[in-house]
Design a protein around this nucleic acid. Structure first.
Lengths: 144, 144
DNA sequence: GTAAGGCTTCCCATCATGGGAAGGTCAAGG
DNA sequence: CCTTGACCTTCCCATGATGGGAAGCCTTAC
């Protein structure tokens, strides 16, 4: 199986397969006579593992850790769980950060007329002016 | 005011001030005889605007748009609001994506013993095996 | 005079991915 | 046999926003 077929079978682009090999995430593929990379089902399985880990937001470094644990038959599920819970915490931190932004932005947008006039509490906030005392133009709740 | 003072006054690192100038986000600072960049209160105000926009997650491109709207006295608040709502939608999309990851990961972690044994539904999922039928080890709800 | 600290530019690294060029290889079909 | 097209190879560059650090200039204080 060449890299194109491995890519189709795994859902990982050929570009990324080469990159993962380069950074040592996956073992270098063996080469056929024409210097083409050759893959078997097992390698494709590894690639799918990587793709799934990436789709759950694990970094390549975390993915490498998980990959090693997967291949280590004497691993403990505690070790795996620790990686996962660490990642969950990271995601939740980032989610909370973005939710804070959304909350502020929705409040500002809610207070913004959104009309032809130039007055805009959003710009006022960015400019550090007029702390905004909820004197909004709308009365239909757009928040929540 | 030199770049260091402007940095302290605005909360934007000197490195970033130079970068923002380089990419055209802010106007090139005038230079004093020794070729040092010189800033006044107005420039610092602009830098604070940028910092605030960044802290709300606006990209530098969006920040540039907002900066131009801020300086354009004939802007409409509708134009500003559109940028903000677009950004809110983007944030919410990313939040939803990450929440999906968290949901899956919490489920998997919940079903993982987290003990000395190697069996691990997290790895099984990543490997694309055993679709997981909620046969978890825990009974205290960790989800939600 | 020299040391410290601030300024300048320039290059490199991050993280994960894609784009594209230049060139080798292979299979099918004229 | 030769061309065409679809692969493959490596190498370089770009993204977005930021930081690190080197080499060298300027100023101020001791």
């Amino acid at each position: 199986m060449n890299i194109g077929q491995a890519s189709d079978a795994s859902g990982v682009s050929a570009k990324m397969i080469r990159y993962y090999e380069e950074i040592g995430l996956i073992r270098p593929a063996s080469r056929s006579g024409n210097n083409y990379r050759v893959y078997d089902e097992e390698q494709v399985h590894v690639l799918r593992f990587v793709r799934r880990a990436r789709s759950l937001g694990f970094s390549l470094e975390e993915t490498e850790t998980l990959l090693k644990l997967w291949q280590d038959k004497s691993r403990t599920s505690a070790a795996v769980k620790e990686v996962a819970t660490g990642h969950i915490a990271d995601l939740e931190r980032r989610i909370a950060e973005m939710q804070g932004m959304v909350k502020t932005l929705k409040h500002l947008a809610h207070c913004c007329g959104g009309d032809h006039r130039p007055d805009c509490p959003i710009l006022d906030d960015l400019a550090g002016e007029k702390p905004l005392h909820d004197q909004h133009h709308h009365h239909e709740g757009e928040l929540r």
